[in-house]
Design a protein around this nucleic acid. Structure first.
Lengths: 348, 348
DNA sequence: TGACAGCATGTTTACGTAAACATGACGGCG
DNA sequence: CGCCGTCATGTTTACGTAAACATGCTGTCA
């Protein structure tokens, strides 16, 4: 391949990118015609089109998306701000977002926040303004955002996941409360007198909602409400909780705020010589792929992360296309209870 | 806020974006001076700088990254092509990529491939050419890529994860073989006569490597090589395998190619009334966060996904900065064996 | 036959930024 | 006192694309 000589660029780094002008020159047409071919516009006679396509192939032409974005004022990109990708649901939500966005011709840009301090979140939002993004999906406890200082750049649309900010933002979330209700009611229906609860981290909105619902169901049913045990989503914290829970018949049923903590519980009970589900019933939340293979298989609340991601993209695209501001409101994705082997009527 | 009147744009959608020219007009300077302030260039007297900054604040100016990218010929973005984000390690690798990229001022764009057919991969690569990306990290069995038809756009740098394509691409991967060796040796050292193996999917490069190493270690030690049981990474497939493995003393040790299949094994053995580790020892691979809370806690090979992601970014940035083509070669990240409660000397 | 519609294609311009070059004022030194 | 270097700032231009407008040719119908 020969170094292009005609380029007026003096010395240094040669230009690697093939532009429309290059294609146009080779095909012997104007760059506008190349543009029309490139975008499939009508009004190009087929012989010309063929010539242009041939030139494109020969030079390996690819449209420059920066120039396109500049021209159109759009990036065809959705940004996702998140704290951690490792947390159970996030990666599945993000995957769904990326897949659906791709199907709509949008790319997905990740904006990770290593430590969820106010400063970092703020920084991410600031950076985001400079980022090539048409809309942003925030997967994070929203209370980190709303100290008032954080100003979203205008023209950027926002959808939020896992949050109580439905009054200010457009929110999509799993119906945490309903899921938790299903879990607790299932245990009560089996005949348990009451249900213990291992919570998520206290600053987690999802965790709070699950705990609230747990408390509410017990209250409505007139059952005693045992003290909550505080976990942090990790199996380790579930294990810790499992070691300090009282023996049956004081505790015959536990609702863990997620599956990993439920796993920790299972291990703790196993070590204590308590049989699940005969001595103690355990219900989790999330329905991670492995949940069916715990010992025993875990009864849990299934979250449809894919649907959450899907709706996020829908909402974001709606906003982009309609040029609307985020319409506040919360969109709840329903859950289902998956009954497996970790729950049974109390044996006492 | 008042609709700007001076804009020559007729009718329709008003321009939302504030440009340097707007800031310049308000501050009473040229747009070049605004550019200098925006980029922290020297040679702007502080009073002028203040004026410009004030104007920026007042108008809410944010640099337009499309224009920047066009000017610089760079996007400050790394693309990640992947098949699934849900697979154990991928989400952690991607998270590490995103974090390290962000630290270097690069955004991370996800290019998901829903079904790993040749067509789709090809499509992703084609799209990628149009995508605003300076380098690409491919997390995927590479053999899907190299039928020869797939042509990477020139000027895009590539790093590959989980592949044997070290002769053509720059590859970063966990040292699969060494990890598997450690697992098998650990079991032999405990006194087991031989070790059974539940593999990953046959088209997985990582799975192949682990299986090869397993076979090699047994061969070197002069032990019989039992038939491999074929799994697909899922706990379900591990469970299936666990149901058909022979009773001790024919089978006293199993090496599962990942932790989820090991989990399935544990459940199968539990159902069969076999005690782990007294009747059968089990070793996994990955060291997922929950592995320590399986029943019993799983002995497994720890993969440093974060390091893999880190090195990917390093390599990608090296290529971008040096304007070098991908230097072929494989960079292996070491593993560690984490011994927990699922392995013990054979009781027979 | 001439005017005009319709169509393929070319030319101009703008998108927002920043490098390269131009300008002009001021101060120091011969 | 005048020349020139330095420094703050302005002006021009190019990056690649595509809309808007311009051009020129062909064929048709009055």
């Amino acid at each position: 391949m020969v170094e292009r000589g005609g380029s007026g660029v003096p010395g240094g780094r040669r230009k690697q990118r093939v532009s429309m002008a290059d294609v146009a020159k080779l095909a012997g047409v104007s760059s506008q015609t190349v543009s029309r071919v490139s975008n499939g516009h009508p009004g190009v006679i087929s012989s010309t089109r063929e010539q242009v396509l041939a030139a494109m192939r020969e030079l390996g032409y690819r449209p420059n998306s920066a120039a396109r974005a500049l021209r159109y004022g759009q990036f065809n990109t959705i940004g996702v701000i998140l704290f951690s990708l490792s947390s159970t649901g996030n990666s599945r939500t993000v995957e769904a977002i990326a897949t659906h966005a791709a199907a709509e011709g949008y790319a997905t840009t990740l904006i990770p926040i290593d430590v969820p301090t106010q400063d970092n979140v703020l920084g991410a939002f600031t950076r985001m303004g400079e980022l090539a993004v048409d809309a942003v999906i925030v997967i994070m406890e929203i209370h980190l955002l709303d100290t008032g200082t954080v100003q979203l750049p205008p023209g950027v649309h926002v959808v939020v996941v896992d949050s109580d900010a439905g009054d200010r933002y457009s929110v999509v979330d799993t119906d945490q409360a309903d899921g938790a209700r299903k879990a607790v009611r299932h245990l009560l229906d089996l005949g348990h007198r009451t249900v213990w609860h291992v919570t998520g981290p206290q600053e987690s909105f999802a965790g709070q909602r699950r705990a609230q619902a747990w408390r509410a169901v017990l209250g409505e049913a007139g059952r005693p409400v045992p003290p909550a045990l505080y976990g942090d989503w990790s199996a380790a914290s579930g294990y810790e909780a499992g070691l300090v829970l009282p023996e049956p018949p004081d505790c015959t049923a536990v609702f863990a705020a997620n599956d990993q903590m439920a796993l920790g519980l299972l291990r703790a009970f196993h070590e204590r010589g308590l049989s699940v589900p005969y001595d103690v019933s355990v219900v989790g939340f999330d329905d991670i792929p492995d949940a069916g293979f715990f010992v025993p298989p875990l009864t849990t609340v299934h979250q449809d992360f894919a649907e959450v991601g899907h709706r996020c993209v829908q909402k974001a695209l709606e906003q982009i296309r309609a040029q609307t501001e985020a319409r506040p409101g919360t969109d709840l994705v329903p859950t289902t209870l998956v009954v497996r082997g970790s729950t049974a009527p109390p044996s006492v």
